[in-house]
């Protein structure tokens, strides 16, 4: 039995089909990267997993149990196990860094505030922001905000971390600090699904890469193989374009 299994999922955005018969397996401790041209459905796939887009057909199984996205309780349970970090960080603008990290565990999961805060401080120190507890998001750089967002999602102790182009909105000099944080998480053996355009980074951390185009997964495999000797023409063409940059 697979840990996470996406089974022939379709999804629509308005009238447009954005995911078509997508299947993907993820094992515990896997770091799976989704690559491909923009608009190929990579982000949509992550959004489907956390129920921000509804799959119209197909199933998503976690440890053999299908998630029913139409059922509140099932969706709630799924969202406790997945955590997503967005491209635009999406920190709550009206809360301090510490509050951003602690609000969900305390107010939603009802855990003791003291305990959560102690954990949050550790997490923020881990991402290098132990000094910024009392700052508001608009006082931080993009890279710092993104690291807070990562800490926020970790505070809920998710099993699978979904990273949606987390460095795309950042200035080049800020990318490294965020990638370092993710590297750290990969070393800890966290299960992650990453959407990224940083090919070097993807090659380094991934245990598996899926190439997507036009809403489909075209090719899945070993990182080096997909990046260097893909089987399909479309993947070859894409890699060619990327490498020429």
């Amino acid at each position: 039995m697979k840990y996470l299994s996406i089974d022939q999922c379709d999804a629509f955005y308005g009238d447009q089909k954005v995911l078509e018969c997508v299947s993907l397996d993820v094992d515990k401790g896997d770091v799976v990267s989704l690559i491909g041209p923009s608009g190929s459905g990579k982000s949509t796939l992550l959004r489907v997993l956390v129920g921000l887009n509804q799959p119209t057909s197909g199933r998503i199984l976690l440890e053999g149990e299908a998630i029913d996205y139409k059922n509140r309780r099932s969706l709630k349970k799924a969202r406790e196990r997945f955590a997503i970090v967005f491209q635009q960080y999406n920190l709550f603008q009206n809360m301090t860094v510490l509050k951003n990290v602690t609000v969900a565990p305390v107010k939603i999961q009802g855990r003791p505030k003291k305990e959560v805060e102690a954990e949050a401080v550790l997490l923020l120190e881990k991402v290098g922001l132990g000094e910024k507890l009392k700052s508001y998001p608009d006082e931080l750089s993009g890279g710092q905000q993104q690291r807070v967002a990562i800490a926020r999602s970790l505070a809920l102790k998710p099993e699978i971390l979904l990273l949606d182009e987390v460095t795309s909105a950042l200035d080049p000099e800020l990318v490294t600090e965020v990638l370092d944080t993710i590297r750290l998480l990969a070393k800890e053996g966290r299960t992650m699904i990453i959407v990224s355009h940083e090919m070097g980074f993807v090659l380094e951390v991934s245990s598996k890469i899926a190439f997507m185009d036009a809403g489909r997964i075209i090719e899945v495999g070993e990182p080096r193989k997909i990046l260097e000797q893909p089987d399909t023409d479309r993947a070859r063409e894409f890699m060619g374009k990327i490498l020429r940059h």
Binding site: V50, L52, K76, R79, E80, I84, N90, F92, Q93
Partner: peptide, 11 residues
Amino acid sequence: TQWEAAEVLNF
């Protein structure tokens, strides 16, 4: 995006 962030945190 603020709504979405809250939604995925189960608010």
